[in-house]
């Protein structure tokens, strides 16, 4: 009355246990594909998390178009464009890092990851310059908004969204930097090979998503007309 027969699992006998394979997976392929699905599902949750802010921004923008357009002139689009380019290039170096891992080139992998890390740092530096400028002028969110000489009322709402959206994005950049630093550390220890590079790929996906969100933030924040 049994539902199944059992077969001894072949893998345990034929191969030595490959490095990086967790015990509950049958082989590297199953592990890689499972973690990839997991990562993409996580990215979907990130999209919806930011999505809530985008929907709120869109609705409030359509309610108060004049205030939003007037407020965005306080942002410097050149700094925004600079940061866009910085993030795009960092996305490129990240994907090159994945390529270096896939082809088993340890030195290049470390080089590309380090470049990505530095570019992320550069992004945060530009962000810091922008933020301190806003703080100085009293362009702050919500009830802390204290900018003098506004002709259009309600601009605080734009800055509420500006700080919430770029702030949440900035937190993601910082978390990405931590993850990339971890990759660099593991790469130096020689953990990765053309057989096992899952973590590089996963962090890469995360990093591209951070880039992707910024691609939308840039025109919505800096280039309103």
């Amino acid at each position: 009355m049994s539902q199944s027969t059992t077969v001894p699992s072949q893998d345990h006998h034929e191969h030595a246990h490959p490095p990086g394979l967790q015990h509950h997976f049958i082989d590297m392929r199953q592990q890689f594909e499972a973690s990839k699905i997991g990562m993409w599902l996580f990215l979907v949750t990130e999209v919806l998390l930011f999505g809530g802010l985008f929907v709120g921004y869109g609705i409030m923008h359509s309610k108060h178009p004049e205030a939003f357009i007037a407020a965005h002139t306080h942002l410097d689009w050149r700094l925004g464009a600079l940061n866009t380019i910085v993030l795009l290039v960092s996305s490129f170096t990240m994907v090159m890092g994945v390529w270096a891992a896939q082809t088993g080139q340890k030195k290049k992998l470390i080089g590309y990851l380090t470049t990505t890390f530095l570019l992320a740092g550069a992004f945060m530096v530009v962000k810091y310059i922008e933020y301190s400028h806003k703080f100085h002028e009293g362009l702050l969110p919500g009830k802390f908004y204290a900018h003098q000489g506004d002709t259009v009322p309600g601009q605080f709402m734009f800055f509420s969204f500006y700080f919430m959206m770029t702030g949440l994005h900035g937190i993601h950049v910082l978390l990405g930097m931590v993850a990339i630093a971890w990759l660099i550390w593991r790469a130096q220890k020689g953990h990765f090979s053309s057989q096992y590079y899952g973590p590089v790929d996963m962090v890469g996906l995360y990093w591209h998503l951070v880039d992707l969100i910024w691609i939308y933030l840039f025109p919505l924040m800096y280039l309103l007309t």
């Binding site: 990215l43 999209v47 919806l48 999505g51």
Partner: peptide
């Protein structure tokens, strides 16, 4: 499909 599905539901929300 997963990714586009996520975007689809964001669209539904909006």
């Amino acid at each position: 499909v997963i990714f586009v599905g996520g975007l689809f539901f964001l669209g539904v929300f909006l």
